[in-house]
């Protein structure tokens, strides 16, 4: 079965989701990522979903779970690059992913993680 690659960049892990994920792939990603955070002691997780054309409740739940699990493992999750149409639909669906931090793009997301690592407090201005 395909796996979604997880890249390590300094203290952070970067995942770029580029395919229309089927549900098993999403579950596999959740597991792989948990293992990888524990193994690398990563402090941040960046999930780039700018290629995703939809996020349904299943993927939404996966993002929520990843954020919750990584929080317990002392890592922060930032979801970046959600498209406007996807965001509108997700809100209409009834999912606001309140437990997930967000940023416009990978660069901004990385900055958020670094700021936190440098002890500049929690993500500036971003509700968690």
């Amino acid at each position: 079965m395909d796996r979604i690659p997880i890249l390590k960049m300094g203290d952070a892990l970067l995942i770029t989701i580029q395919v229309d994920m089927h549900d098993r792939l999403a579950l596999a990603l959740e597991e792989d990522l948990t293992a990888k955070i524990a193994a690398t002691k990563a402090k941040g997780v960046l999930i780039d979903i700018s290629s995703l054309e939809i996020v349904d409740s299943f993927i939404g739940r996966m993002l929520d779970n990843i954020a919750a699990v990584s929080r317990m493992l002392d890592a922060d999750t930032v979801v970046v690059g959600m498209r406007p149409a996807v965001a509108i639909t997700l809100v209409e669906l009834g999912l606001s992913l309140t437990g997930v931090k967000t940023a416009l793009n990978v660069e901004r997301g990385m900055l958020m993680i670094q700021n936190r690592l440098r002890g500049l407090g929690d993500f500036s201005g971003r509700r968690s």
């Binding site: 979801v79 970046v80 690059g81 959600m82 498209r83 406007p84 996807v86 965001a87 509108i88 997700l90 809100v91 209409e92 606001s96 992913l97 967000t102 940023a103 416009l104 793009n105 901004r108 997301g109 201005g125 971003r126 509700r127």
Partner: peptide, 13 residues
């Protein structure tokens, strides 16, 4: 409200 929520999902306040 939905727009504010959608903007937050995109990473903007």
């Amino acid at each position: 409200l939905k727009t504010v929520a959608a903007a937050r999902l995109m990473g903007a306040d």
